[in-house]
Design a protein around this nucleic acid. Sequence first.
DNA 1: CCGGCTAATATGTCTAGACATAATTCAAGT
DNA 2: ACTTGAATTATGTCTAGACATATTAGCCGG
Lengths: 228, 228
Amino acid sequence: MTLGWEEIRAEVLRRIRVRDWPPGALIPGEEALAEEFGVARATVNRALTALAEAGVIERKKRAGTRVAALPVRRARLEIPVIRLDVLGRGLAYDFRLMADRQVPAPVPVAARLGLPEGQPMRYLETLHLAGGLPFVLETRWLNPAVLPDPPPDFAAVSANEWLVTHVSLVSGDIAFTAEPATPREAEVMGVAPGTPLLVAERTTQGMAGPVTLVRLAHAPGHRVVMTF
Amino acid sequence: MTLGWEEIRAEVLRRIRVRDWPPGALIPGEEALAEEFGVARATVNRALTALAEAGVIERKKRAGTRVAALPVRRARLEIPVIRLDVLGRGLAYDFRLMADRQVPAPVPVAARLGLPEGQPMRYLETLHLAGGLPFVLETRWLNPAVLPDPPPDFAAVSANEWLVTHVSLVSGDIAFTAEPATPREAEVMGVAPGTPLLVAERTTQGMAGPVTLVRLAHAPGHRVVMTF
DNA sequence: CCGGCTAATATGTCTAGACATAATTCAAGT
DNA sequence: ACTTGAATTATGTCTAGACATATTAGCCGG
């Protein structure tokens, strides 16, 4: 039986786990491991590269490879389109466009996106429903420069989904916070004002500049789950 | 100038972004791309493998490579040890061990970890401080089977940090929720009961079974930030 | 028309060898 | 002592070719 790179990764990981190679220790070079396992150096390299990406080891040219002393655990969050998220929970999906206006960007919004203050923006408020009940209230500021002419009908396709399929998003970030429901959120979602809501705030940048700032206020009890 | 795999990845990504290759479309095979870019197939493979890991494309043997129709955006969360998280914010770190008891596992805890009900467990309550102010209240159930004899002094090293460096964690998950501060949390953290708190609940499994279930209640206003 | 076998094909992985690059060590030279 | 530069070394990447594996398309017999 001949070894593949995944088996080598597993074996190296095992030795780290049983503290054969304790945190901070230097592990043998690729050449030595290749000989030990009877494979080409490239195969060892593939395995170690994968472990480095996972944060288990740290590699430096000339200095060699060492076991990460304080392994940074990385969790991956897959952010699906809201519709698929709901369907994935076995619930019926629907949404309602609650507001759609052209408004000058308020200062905090403009600042977050790096746009001039007062720049006209599309403001959208969409309530996503799961099984007929409020699931997420989406409050979105959209840079109209990214929209085609004529603009899409966000009452037919949710802005969430239209953007994913029609705009090339380059980078962005998400921040999760716990916030008391605003009066508006309380009213729309049918909860008491001040109820703790899990809020995700996302900004995204496209190729041609800032695209959107969106606040997703999740219904009480919502859990965002990640595995590592 | 000769092309490397990162440049090929960038070029393929560019073509996807400008919709040269729209979502759902089949892109040329590795052989064809290799010829076009004047590199070996392995180099193209390296580039495409990276894009597939990022969720931009989907690859299947025989069927070829196609642009992901609904690109699932993946965000990565790096979970540092709390001490480093605080120091990284430029604040002084300290912690206080508020409780340390041996208690039979309550049903929900035992169930979440897959341990028999009533199993004796170590219960730890640690308040982490940033700049002298409450930062996180850590409520931890720890499987004593993973502890050495004699057990470490969690008043000297926080359980959070001791576990990372001394126990090989194999897998686990994190869930974020927004919850009203319990009376205990309100008292310890100096906030009004019911204040929305961002709560992270983590379970981790080691090689020799379940390790710990921990609830991290973050001070109001805490943001968990991820980039993608 | 359908089920199953077979051949074709694109990706997945491996090898052996080469050169590139970064980082460290150590020897000069000022 | 301090700086500069060259040799060394481990990882990073690339090549050309090979075989492995999954999946599909098509053929063929019932």
